[in-house]
Amino acid sequence: MRTEDLHSLTGAYALHALPDDERDAFERHLAGCATCDQETREFAAATARLGLAETLSPGPVLKDRVLHRITTVRQVPPDGGTAAKARRAAPRGRGLARWALAACLAAAAGLGGTAVWQYERAQDAGERATQAEQRAETLAGVLAAPDAESRTARLSDGASGTLVVSEDRDRAVFLASGMAEPPQGSVYQLWFDDHGTMRSAGLMDPGSTSQAVLMEGAVDGAAGVGITVEPAGGSDQPTSDPIALLSMPA
């Protein structure tokens, strides 16, 4: 594959839309191309922000219907790989429709995964649905806020993280892309850096490598954000050195 072709794959790579052979070739190229590295991180952050900003929350009627149906509908059996084979057989067009579809899927996966994980952690069925809906609305509101500012950083193992902050809303969202799963029995925990004092800002989903996380609590003048690896359930204070530190967007 020519270098010119590799330069054109930044958007598809950020959206995890490349087949294995192209992804491997691009990652080898990415290690030595600062321009593609920056463009890939910007694509990932922009896609999440634009997609989530257009998210609409379902009304109470739909919520009640879903809660009722999940107790009566049988699980669909595995398709035996039919979907995966269909994806591999699909035409490899690089037109606008492919990008639009990939962007929608990436945004839905990020928001959906976060909502489902937070849904499962709550205690009561009604409370689970309400909390997931409220958090999704707040998360989308931060990303769509007119004053939202972002900062993107390269993390370990090729992952990237973007911190989005709205001063007016006094809230922050962390967007992760390509993070390795934490060690067994551990979880990534987010922290606000209150000028030297670390304040817990919630846990990340240990089973998801790419996700959008509404950070818990107000920003309240924090100087930055840190990520540590903590025991399952989280810690009151960091018990490990941070794997990443991001200063607040200017």
Rank of each mutant, 00 (worst) to 15 (best):
E120V: 10
V164S: 07
L101F: 10
W99N: 12
R128I: 09
A132R: 02
G126F: 02
A145K: 04
G95E: 12
T138Q: 11
A140Y: 01
D124Q: 15
A122K: 07
M179R: 05
E133V: 14
Y119D: 08
D170C: 01
E149P: 00
A90Y: 11
A132I: 10
T138W: 07
A129H: 07
A176D: 12
A100T: 10
A109I: 06
Q123S: 10
E120Q: 15
G95I: 12
F174Y: 12
T138K: 10
V165W: 07
A148K: 07
A145G: 08
E181I: 09
A100I: 07
R88G: 09
E167N: 02
G126M: 04
R171P: 00
S186I: 02
Q131C: 05
R94L: 13
V116K: 03
Q184V: 08
S160I: 05
Q131H: 08
P182T: 01
D170W: 01
A159W: 03
E127V: 13
R154A: 15
E149F: 00
R92V: 14
R169Y: 04
A107G: 15
A115S: 11
G112T: 02
Q131D: 03
L105W: 02
S186Y: 08
A103N: 09
T138L: 15
A109S: 14
L111W: 02
Q123H: 03
T138C: 08
E149S: 06
A90N: 14
V164L: 03
Y188N: 07
T114S: 03
A129W: 05
A90I: 06
C104V: 15
V164I: 01
L139Q: 03
E133F: 13
T114K: 05
A153C: 07
R88M: 14
L139C: 00
A180P: 00
A107W: 07
R171A: 12
A122Y: 08
W99I: 14
V116C: 02
